[in-house]
């Protein structure tokens, strides 16, 4: 009797675990839709900003914004690593942490000083444990990043770049492809590189899936006809900041969606495992119970026989 009792309590606890994983899976799958929508909204804003910058860049040939200019010497690299606050999301955190660590090590071996900014408790715990020197840690925003959070982080980064404290800024984040697939990705935030005719890192647009197609672009007229108020330079100066805020915001949103997706997948397989385990345990339980009954019956029968024989 003892054995079957033991199995029964195991079944009970497995059912309890399954309830939790199932609930987490359902929460994640309801959140993911929202997270995807937020990425979509942010992309619309980004596309609008990129549009204005491209127009201005087309009109004025010599742009000399400090954020567009690479520094003469590249000594210090700022790496912003986007991790999650919570675990239980499969390989999400370990994958992105691996990429951050690789980037840090590569920069150090190239003889550069690294300043490390970390978003998320998981990343902080790891890098602190490994003895890295972390400059800034931002927590409690991986669940629902707001634009203001992104702006605060960007401001800090921009002020350091303009002061000349850092010469290059790299963001490591997880790109959201679909709920089952996330891609740890690197992106150079500053200086903004000119690639081809676009005055913005094409890489950024590509990484964040922003496409400014000719039909969508509202500037189908010759550039010279556009009126800028107060002046192209002034509009550009301020809109470039907006561009950086939005890029950072975009990476935060991608990371959140990835985290949710990873959690959903992990919890799905956990629930499945629990299901399998319950099935197996139930079988074992029945077997043990039957064994018990058989044993009891044979005991009774042999007892009866003994009595009859007497």
């Amino acid at each position: 009797m003892e054995k079957s009792q033991e199995i029964r309590s195991r079944i009970k606890s497995t059912i309890g675990t399954r309830k939790i994983t199932k609930a987490m899976e359902m929460i994640a799958s309801s959140k993911i839709k929202k997270a995807q929508n937020r990425i979509f909204e942010a992309r619309a804003f980004m596309a609008g900003i990129v549009d204005v910058i491209t127009d201005i860049a087309g009109q004025t040939n010599s742009l000399s914004d400090p954020l567009l200019m690479p520094h003469k010497e590249e000594k210090t690299v700022l790496i912003l690593g986007v991790t999650a606050d919570r675990g239980l999301c499969g390989g999400y955190n370990s994958n992105i942490i691996r990429l951050i660590e690789k980037t840090v090590k590569n920069s150090i071996s190239a003889g550069k000083t690294v300043k490390l900014f970390i978003i998320g408790t998981r990343g902080r715990n790891y890098f602190r444990y490994m003895g890295y020197d972390i400059e800034m840690v931002y927590e409690n925003l991986s669940d629902y990043p707001r634009f203001l959070d992104a702006r605060e982080i960007s401001r800090e980064i921009i002020s350091r770049y303009i002061k000349g404290e850092v010469d290059r800024v790299i963001i490591c984040f997880t790109k959201f492809k679909n709920p089952a697939e996330q891609l740890p990705t690197m992106l150079q935030l500053l200086p903004i590189v000119k690639q081809g005719s676009m005055y913005l890192a094409d890489g950024v647009l590509e990484q964040l899936d922003i496409k400014v197609t000719p039909e969508e672009s509202i500037s189908q007229m010759p550039f010279a006809e556009i009126l800028y108020d107060p002046s192209p330079r002034e509009v550009l100066e301020s809109i470039i900041l907006e561009y950086i805020y939005t890029t950072v915001y975009g990476t935060l949103l991608e990371a959140t969606a990835s985290e949710t997706g990873a959690r959903m997948t992990a919890m799905k397989s956990a629930s499945k495992n629990a299901d399998d385990m319950i099935k197996e345990l139930v079988l074992i339980y029945h077997r043990a119970r039957q064994q018990q009954i058989t044993m009891e019956i044979s005991e009774i029968i042999s007892g009866t026989f003994a009595l009859i024989n007497e």
Binding site: M221, E225, I226, L227, Y228, D229, P230, V235, S238
Partner: peptide, 19 residues
């Protein structure tokens, strides 16, 4: 509410970018 003062826009306005 444009940076340089209030501004009204009707259809057919010339292409403009304003803060």
């Amino acid at each position: 509410p444009a940076k340089s003062g209030s501004m009204g826009v009707l259809p057919g306005h010339i292409p403009t970018v304003t803060r």
